[in-house]
Computed example of a mutant assay.
Amino acid sequence: MKTLLQRLDLDLPILQAPMAGAQGSELATAVSRAGGLGALPCAMLSPAAMEEELDAFRAGTAGPINVNVFCHAPPAPDPERQARWLEALAPWYAEFDLDLEAVPAGAGRRPFDHAACDVLESFRPEVVSFHFGLPAAELLARVKAWGATVLSTATTVEEARWLEAHGADAVIAQGLEAGGHRGLFLTEDLTTQMGTLALLPQVREAVDVPVIAAGGIADARGVTAALALGAEAVQVGTAFLCCPESRASAIHRRALMSEAARHTALTNLYSGRPARGIVTRLMRELGPISDAAPAFPLATAAIAPLRAAAEAQGSGDFSPLWAGQNASRCREVPACEVVRDLALGLLR
């Protein structure tokens, strides 16, 4: 049986984590050229934007691509919860002289659907990865029909078993250290979430499909440790955010390379689902987790005006500064150097 690397025709067991809003085809292309698996986050892209980014990737490299999409169930708007959310944010709206009445009730990230699948089918990406479980059976069948390898994220052993039983070809074991959105989908109980070094060997024993380690891995030592614990590959995100190929904002980059990056927390304030980021003023003053925040992704709409107003003043106080617990290797170096450094222990 082929290993995951053989199946994907990869030189190195290094997967770049898809980071919606902070990167596009430039970073994915650079990682692919360096021998890893570049990822294109499409959760925030329209079908037309997906096509444009995939065109750019295919023009830049012949390597494989991982296209990442979300498969959450869109929530029904809840006017009462929305009103509580706006009430909680009202003091900051007043501070920036913003109009609470102008905030739309809806918005947010599209879940994977047939329109998105139509675009992907025309490009036949080698890997399609999902966050928050797997899509409906008919959509998953379409993806598998062109030969794509299907990945999805598990944050618990139970989620890993579920993914294997429902058609995932490999499981990404996402430790609690990981930046960005948690991939949890069978539970909302954050006490079930564990660190990478605890989660990885348990998932490895629980499933027969390949396992990819994610969370807290930023250098060759982390890669070596993950492989020793049974991972066939690692997924790394935060270490790439300050590369020139990243689209992370100047505010985000400054935070990543500052002492502030040592303090991260899970928060649902920016989207409605738990995600790890550098602690901001909003998280400190409101508390990182709030029952008032609307369900994912509806919380985003009311945060957007605050973020724009603060960023116009050069502040990230209301920005989602996504980062894992180990930002120690965030450097302004080309992505190929990050890949090379991650692979050092494999090349000796």
Rank of each mutant, 00 (worst) to 15 (best):
N68V: 07
L140V: 09
A213G: 12
R253L: 03
S271W: 08
L98M: 08
V150P: 02
S290T: 00
R281L: 14
A102P: 06
A145M: 13
T300K: 06
R329C: 13
G183K: 12
E101A: 15
G133A: 02
Q313K: 15
V157I: 15
L266M: 10
A301R: 13
D55C: 14
L186V: 15
H166A: 13
A17W: 02
L134M: 14
L197R: 06
P91C: 05
Y270C: 13
A309I: 10
G222D: 10
R58Q: 14
Q313C: 02
R254N: 11
A226W: 00
V31C: 00
G38W: 05
E177T: 05
V31L: 00
G175V: 08
C336H: 10
H181R: 06
Q193H: 14
D113P: 07
A17Y: 01
M257I: 08
S122A: 15
L269G: 07
A250N: 03
A62L: 12
G167W: 00
E332K: 06
R329N: 05
P125K: 07
G167N: 01
L199I: 14
L163A: 05
V279T: 14
F132Q: 07
R276M: 09
L321T: 01
R284D: 11
N68E: 11
T192S: 14
I217N: 03
F132I: 07
A343C: 09
G35D: 07
L54I: 10
S328N: 09
S315Y: 06
G316N: 11
G324K: 02
D208S: 15
A228S: 10
M19C: 05
T238F: 01
G287Q: 02
S46M: 09
S319V: 08
E332N: 12
G38C: 09
L100I: 04
L86S: 01
R7P: 03
L229C: 05
H263I: 09
L347T: 14
E53N: 11
A343Y: 01
M1W: 06
D118N: 02
L346Q: 02
G175D: 05
V333W: 00
V236Y: 01
A327Q: 07
L347S: 09
S32N: 02
G277H: 10
A137I: 13
G167S: 00
I278G: 02
P297T: 04
C336T: 09
A233Y: 12
P18D: 04
I14R: 06
P104L: 04
H114A: 15
L139A: 11
A28V: 07
S25H: 14
